[in-house]
């Protein structure tokens, strides 16, 4: 019977190691997923797009409208121009302005979305404030550019694209504000 107990314990230890390893594997899926997205080019929110075709299609014009939102943040955020008319393939630069209205530093990250949704893959950004997190000092105001090209393969039935940026507060940085004892609700 003791031989059996020893054998049982041996299998138990192996299975527990297996379970713990699978718990780790769950976390390993995170970098694995990010690597796959990076290699296949899916979901590269934080990297400039590569523009291959610079042929300007002067035969048509697309109206690009800009929108700005903040998600539960003490910032004012607006585009300096509401819309711009561009030829596909033509490089354009517009600017947004953000202001931190709070008396503590706040860090935010902008996430773009597009209407119609399928136009997103044709809206190529060379430079964008959404590629990095933005930290604003109390009361600081900042003007930030977006340089973009519309891919000339954009379907012809798309005559207008709405580009909407939403700023989210990066939650990890809230702790910093709380530790200084100021504005724990920010």
């Amino acid at each position: 019977m003791t031989a059996l107990a020893v054998e049982n314990r041996r299998v138990l230890v192996r299975l527990v190691i297996g379970a713990v390893a699978m718990f780790g594997f769950g976390f390993l899926l995170v970098p694995f997923y990010e690597k796959i997205c990076e290699v296949t080019g899916i979901n590269n929110l934080l990297k400039p797009d590569v523009v291959a075709n610079t042929q300007v299609d002067a035969s048509r014009e697309v109206l690009v409208l800009f929108d700005a939102n903040v998600h539960d943040m003490p910032w004012t955020f607006r585009p300096l121009q509401r819309s711009v008319s561009v030829h596909p393939g033509e490089l354009q630069t517009i600017a947004y302005e953000i202001t931190n209205t709070r008396d503590v530093p706040v860090t935010g990250q902008a996430v773009p979305s597009y209407g119609p949704q399928r136009a997103g893959q044709f809206f190529l950004k060379m430079e964008c404030f959404c590629f990095t997190q933005q930290t604003l000092a109390p009361g600081e105001s900042r003007t930030m550019p977006v340089a973009f090209v519309l891919d000339p393969t954009l379907p012809v039935d798309v005559e207008a694209i709405t580009v909407s940026y939403t700023f989210f507060e990066v939650a990890g940085r809230r702790v910093q504000a709380a530790s200084t004892g100021a504005g724990s609700d920010s």
Binding site: F23, F25, G26, V30, Q109, E169, V170, A171, R173
Partner: peptide, 24 residues
């Protein structure tokens, strides 16, 4: 264990400032 890992990530996203699933 993989499910336990997934809900643990939710928990740390909710309370400990990680951003496993937070696009921002």
């Amino acid at each position: 264990p993989v499910l336990a890992g997934a809900v643990t990530m939710l928990l740390t996203d909710r309370h400990f400032g990680t951003s496993f699933f937070n696009a921002a």
